[in-house]
Write a protein that binds this DNA or RNA. Structure first.
Length: 732
DNA sequence: GTGCTCGGACCTTCAAGAAA
DNA sequence: TTCTTGAAGGTCCGAGCACC
């Protein structure tokens, strides 16, 4: 380190009292050029070369386990022993008396020049889901076996039927297949012109590392970083799949930014940049021939593209596109351990992470699209990714790294996969979605209490295996803790609701108070996540999840029993969550979706009206909760806005209420608004409940879907809620 | 002569593990 | 609890090369 570095206090007393000064790093350009940086912004070199000076951010240090000394000495002993056995002279560190531990070949571990033992089940976390190997047969392989000449031991034969040859033949016969999606290109598009300037590429990469990668982990950033930097130096000569991935990364980085920040950093509106990079990603995917491409980078780019267009398309359309991605992943063997085992440990791990990301995203979107097809079933056997850091993986390694029993940078992804894995094996989930698959059910996480629920087992495992190691001050850990707990509350709610087979059946096992407690827990966890400054970087993920189910559950209970022991607390919890959720909108300056807001408002206001009616009988004076005051105000604004539109030209600006909440406007709906405000759960009120459409909420929960006049809604505004999501058991 | 790239020596940081 | 160690991140010198 040069002497230019700011001095750090070495006095222990001072060090504990004074905050350590922030280390100033050389700017990105100087780092890249390996030249001295004066660490002023802009720095001398950037001024000189008229480049934009971008401060570098410190990478989190991922430490590797030390090579244990004892193990090192044992190895040395072993090699000395081998030298002795072969009569080779050497200067021994150990005398003969102490050597000989590994004198027999049978006793010793594998020799260094031998192939290390193949690891077939590297992870303890794989226990739950990898014991079945569903290794399907390829008809061409079977034929090859059938007609193989027994005198030839080679795999290749002139008579062989080669699947690769077939693919080449198809490629030649139908060269324009990829234009099935993303349209045809009448004029050549030079996508190198769509890239941002190099300095912005580095900024986008940093944003990706900070905001997106921790929640998805579908790229190996240590090895990808070099490729991105290299690509940034020559934009006209990038490998097609890498270029697609880079555009995917741009899309996700921009998506993760708030509107104001995006403008401040890149000097362009967020929507413009998203459109530009999504178009670039489409073109780059076309260049990869993505519909037939078997490269992971290409599929990852497609995932990023789909995630970034989520808020500007319908779940039905996105679900269809996801079908393409899932089928591609299956063709590549991402869902199958017997195919994954043939890859290097790093490649196999990235493929597992990509598969889980695709499945969880697909499941969410399928629910919104009212699709009865669920990918979250026990019919595939890709195991949960390893709990390991990126730095534990190297491209050339042959052995899987250790599955750590501590918090790694993949924590969020691992916990999310564990939760998804629970769902796909949960009896109540399969009973509702795919009853034919119940025979495949096994107790993934048996309850710690005899006769306890499936969710008890899940909670116990998640808390002890992951959350007990978490540091609540760490943003990723905080995110994981409260996301997992919110999800578990959702599972409990779903499990209770699944006990109600139909409207005509009495609610024998369902405990309304317990379901409301679950719903309140969901809201409390959600509020914690939204209100914490630790999760600012991950807000883009919250947009996916609006706890609509919880609001419905609580509102219906309050409407039925306006005065109860839970009532006061419930109004407080809802008010807190409403403020936390809707303050996003104020920050983003994005108008809400009035039709969705009206539905949401109706549920809440009906519950409060029931409370007011009961107080009229008793003469009690009531103070309306914050959520009711704000909703009523917003509804008045909507009515006023609609009226003024009927008599004059529309005002396209978002309205802001006197209470500080942004007001829904009837006309200027923005597709993003739905996501920011209600997330995909806003599609709930469609009369059906997505994957759980056979749950009857009517009788036991007094939930009357007929109260909603769906035909009166204008569903043509981007997000078509002809579908339902209960917001029930989906991993966040 | 100027500017750029990049190998690699050197420095700093800080968590793991040992020692007290 | 403190100390030691060493892995990993970070810095930038200087050789080599391209270009004007």
């Amino acid at each position: 380190m040069s002497t230019d570095m700011p001095p750090l206090s070495t006095e222990k007393g001072n060090a504990s009292q004074l905050p350590r000064p922030q280390r100033v790093l050389a700017c990105l350009l100087c780092q890249q050029r390996k030249v001295k940086c004066d660490r002023k912004y802009p720095c001398f070199n950037c001024i000189k070369s008229r480049a934009q000076c971008v401060p570098a951010t410190q990478l989190s240090r991922q430490r590797k386990r030390r090579f244990p000394e004892r193990e090192l000495l044992e190895r040395l002993r072993k090699y000395e022993d081998l030298l002795r056995q072969n009569n080779i002279k050497f200067e021994p560190l150990h005398n003969e008396a102490t050597s000989g531990k590994f004198s027999s070949k049978l006793e010793r571990p594998y020799d260094s020049d031998e192939e290390p033992p193949k690891i077939t089940r590297a992870s303890p976390s794989s226990d739950a889901n990898s014991d079945r190997v569903y290794d399907s047969k390829n008809i061409l392989d079977v034929m090859r076996q059938e007609f193989r000449d027994p005198d030839k031991d080679s795999d290749s034969s002139d008579d062989d039927v080669n699947a690769g040859e077939f693919k080449d033949a198809w490629d030649q016969a139908a060269p324009y297949t990829d234009q099935l999606l993303f349209g045809s290109r009448n004029t050549a598009v030079d996508i190198s012109t769509l890239h941002p300037e190099p300095v912005h590429i580095f900024r986008l990469w940093q944003l990706y590392l900070e905001n997106v990668d921790p929640l998805l982990k579908v790229t190996h950033t240590p090895s990808l970083q070099g490729q991105v930097i290299e690509a940034a130096t020559d934009l006209s000569n990038i490998r097609p799949t890498l270029e697609a991935l880079m555009f995917g990364i741009y899309c996700m980085s921009i998506l993760s930014l708030e509107v104001v920040d995006c403008h401040a950093i890149f000097g362009s509106p967020k929507a413009d940049l998203l459109t530009r990079y999504q178009f670039g990603c489409q073109q780059a995917l076309l260049n990869c021939k993505f519909l037939g491409c078997n490269e992971r980078d290409c599929l990852t780019a497609l995932l990023f593209y789909m995630m970034s267009v989520r808020s500007s398309t319908t779940p039905q359309a996105l679900s269809s596109l996801l079908g393409v991605a899932i089928r591609t992943a299956q063709r590549m063997g991402l869902d199958n351990e017997s195919a994954l085992i043939k890859c290097t440990p790093l490649e196999a791990e990235l493929r597992r992470r990509l598969w889980w990301s695709l499945v969880l995203f697909d499941t969410r979107i399928s629910e919104l699209a009212d699709s009865k097809t669920s990918t979250l079933t026990p019919t595939w056997n890709c195991r949960i990714p390893l709990n390991a850091n990126d730095s534990d993986f190297r491209q050339e390694m042959k052995e899987h790294p250790q599955d750590l029993e501590s918090c790694t940078e993949a924590l969020f992804v691992i916990v999310r996969s564990e939760l998804g894995n629970f769902i796909r094996h949960a009896r109540y989930h399969l009973d509702l979605t795919s009853p034919a698959l119940i025979s495949l059910v096994k107790d993934v996480h048996p309850s710690p209490v005899i006769g306890g629920s499936e969710v008890d087992g899940l909670e116990s495992m998640i808390e002890s295996k992951y959350l007990s190691f978490c540091d609540p001050e760490n943003p990723l850990h905080f995110m994981t803790i409260w996301t997992a707990r919110a999800f578990i509350a959702k599972c409990r709610l779903a499990e209770q609701l699944s006990k109600v087979p139909s409207a005509s059946t009495p609610q024998a096992d369902v405990q309304p108070d317990f379901t409301v407690s679950c719903a309140l827990s969901m809201l409390e966890c959600d509020t914690k996540l939204l209100n914490s400054p630790l999760t600012n970087r991950f807000i883009w993920m919250f947009y996916l999840y609006f706890p609509f189910t919880a609001y419905i559950q609580i509102s219906q209970k309050l409407k039925r029993r306006p005065i109860s022991s839970q009532a006061e607390h419930a109004w407080e919890v809802m008010s807190d969550n409403y403020e936390a959720r809707f303050s996003f909108l104020r920050q983003e300056g994005i108008p809400m979706m009035a039709p969705f807001f009206k539905i949401f408002a109706r549920f809440v206001l009906q519950a409060w009206e029931a409370r007011e009616a009961s107080s009229r009988h008793t003469g009690e004076l009531l103070t309306a909760p914050r959520i009711v005051v704000s909703i009523r105000h917003s509804m008045a604004q909507i009515a006023q806005k609609t009226e003024s539109f009927a008599t004059g030209p529309p005002d396209t600006g978002a309205m802001v209420g006197v209470d500080g909440f942004p007001m829904p406007t009837a006309m200027d709906f923005d597709n993003h608004g739905l996501s920011f405000c209600f997330g995909e759960d806003s599609n709930y009120p469609a009369g059906e409940l997505g994957a759980y459409s056979n749950i009857s909420m009517t009788a036991p929960l007094d939930f009357d879907l007929d109260q909603l006049d769906w035909s009166a809604m204008d569903w043509s505004l981007g997000n078509t809620p002809g579908s339902g999501s209960t917001g029930l058991p989906l991993p966040r």
